[in-house]
Design a protein around this nucleic acid. Structure first.
Lengths: 343, 343
DNA sequence: GTGAAAGCGCTAACAT
DNA sequence: ATGTTAGCGCTTTCAC
């Protein structure tokens, strides 16, 4: 047995009750011109009395505008979304959507089925636009996104190609700040833990870090790939220590990995920051609660969400807002203090 | 200038191309019976060639089923949603929705405008069902949710009244576990920090804790209200210490507040767990990273989301799944170890 | 200013 | 098995 959706008052009923044509009623509701004061008031009363709310589906069909945008998070790992990062993005997106009357559809495309849905969605006018995040490698979704005629805003760049609309944080610049900080505070044997190699964020952060060091003539002792998770960070740190027993600085492409690495360092009896200075990336709440508190590259995550949504709304309205790169900065805490530490 | 939504192939075009009636085409697409093999194949080919995907809006209008459910988070604080708690709920909801073809609409109703939208949504058939979370006090939304004929599943109970469908964690039972743990490990001067007094979770956790203590004949030394945030927890702890200088155990209604309280305790030179044992509530990632790691009441957050979605899907399909209470358990870590600590 | 009529793209009786 | 006919509830020409 199916629940029978109860009927709600229709525009015709409003019109009838107000003693006007459906056309007039429609005009009043969309406060269009060409309606006499009298009729307008009659309709308004009827609307109130009947508790009428226009049926969005019917409106969508008639206007060819759905009134919704999608935020799609594509990724293989089921847990990825649990990262507070996304919560923060969503808050930003939601805030930017608030003044519009666009609904937010959330699509976690972590399974094959989820990806299918996303794909269908891109060709089916189920939304007026799409925000796409966390694309891995050169995900075919990227290409698909170009074929659709729905506006698509990327959150972060895909590995290859440059989409028409995207918002990204200055990952390269931020990583460079980390390198400069290490150099300035006298560290000379830095190592790094990257994210998955097929992600653009990871590549950009690695590149920025390397550049920053190179500019100061400091060689990068070693690099290992993590997967943006704590455990991945811990494991990568083990591998790093096996190959390079005495690093004096560690930069990780995410806070989560830094947290994992801290664990490993402790296990090996290495003190932070005395023996090894550590810098992470993101600066979400968790960075403040590590022991010691984590120095990290701050990324304006909420703004990222906000700007993505704004850009999408612009695109839907027919504008062509260019891409946007948001600034990053270094948040210094105890894990890599600003003054040279006593060794 | 508005972006002109490009036209996509329609069912009629598919039918025409396949040389069959629209009805036949429709039948194939919804793989309904009564289509000859030949026709079926012809249609399938046409679909492939044209890249046809049915227009969900039109389907929705015709079937009176929107194909979407809403997850609404009502709250006054803008930041509340940034709590990893919700990310976890969403992962659960999303997983449960995966096998269905329901889309997830996310509504953060933290502003007046947001609440308006939620209200309209409840009367406008923009979705087939609603999940409602984090209702404060006796939010009028609760009543509204009862008037609508859309199925509504509550996540957590509202302060007053018992909705037809809800999923909740066993807050009372969990809090009781905390009390018992304190008693068992020899603590006799416990204090508590609650959440906002007008939330059901807070009330349930306070009640459970009090009951647990009462059963053992241990009096509750003091209670202060926080607001589920770190800073709120820190402030509440200050007030508690002002009134009761020497508690030996602290239970907080959330991990975030416990983290704040830890800060305050440290400031006052009190050691955890030696001087004061601390137990929080939630057991999300952050609890593992406090210093010392936090003993806390574990709540199956992802399951909560999953079960809410399942319940809603059931309700949409016309079943009447009863309410559901999910078990909680104590996760013991260093902030309140299991064996009596040496004083 | 006003209303009739023709869609929007699909589904669901109801005949055949 | 197949097609015809009405809708679903709203918007939008277009003629008055």
């Amino acid at each position: 047995m199916e629940s029978s959706p109860k009927r709600m008052p229709t525009l015709d009923e409003v019109a009838q009750r107000a003693g006007v044509s459906r056309t007039a009623a429609s005009r009043v509701i969309n406060n269009a011109p060409h309606v006499s004061r009298a009729k307008r008031e009659a309709v308004e009363r009827a609307v109130r009395e009947l508790g009428f709310v226009p049926n969005p589906t019917a409106q969508a069909l008639a206007t060819r505008r759905v009134g919704a945008v999608v935020l799609a998070v594509s990724s293989d790992e089921p847990g990825l979304f649990a990262d507070p990062f996304f919560a923060e993005v969503i808050v930003g997106v939601s805030a930017a959507l608030e003044p519009t009357d666009l609904e937010l559809v959330l699509l976690l495309a972590n399974t094959p089925r989820g990806r299918d849905r996303l794909e269908r969605l891109l060709r089916s006018r189920r939304a007026d636009g799409v925000m796409l995040m966390a694309l891995r490698g050169d995900d075919p979704l990227g290409r698909l996104a170009e074929q659709t005629d729905l506006p698509v805003v990327f959150g972060g760049l895909p590995l290859t190609g440059e989409p028409r609309w995207y918002v990204d944080a200055d990952n390269r610049g931020g990583a460079r700040l980390a390198a400069e900080h290490f150099v300035r505070t006298g560290r000379r044997r830095p190592v790094m833990i990257t994210g998955q190699l097929d992600t653009q964020v990871s590549a950009a952060r690695e590149r920025g870090f390397t550049e920053g060091l190179a500019l100061a003539g400091v060689p990068l002792l070693g690099v290992e790939a993590g997967d943006f998770t704590e455990d991945g960070g811990a494991a990568a740190m083990e591998r790093l220590l096996a190959a390079h027993p005495a690093p004096d600085a560690l930069f990780t492409a995410s806070d989560a990995m830094a947290i994992g690495a801290l664990r490993t360092l402790r296990t090996h009896g290495l003190r932070v920051p005395e023996d090894v200075a550590v810098i992470g990336f993101n600066d979400l709440a968790s960075a403040r609660h590590t022991a010691p508190p984590l120095t990290t590259v701050h990324q304006p995550v909420r703004s990222l969400g906000r700007e993505m949504a704004r850009m999408l709304v612009g695109a839907i309205e027919g504008n062509d807002p260019g891409p946007l790169i948001l600034p990053t900065r270094l948040t210094v805490r105890e894990s890599a203090p600003d003054l040279p530490t006593a060794d």
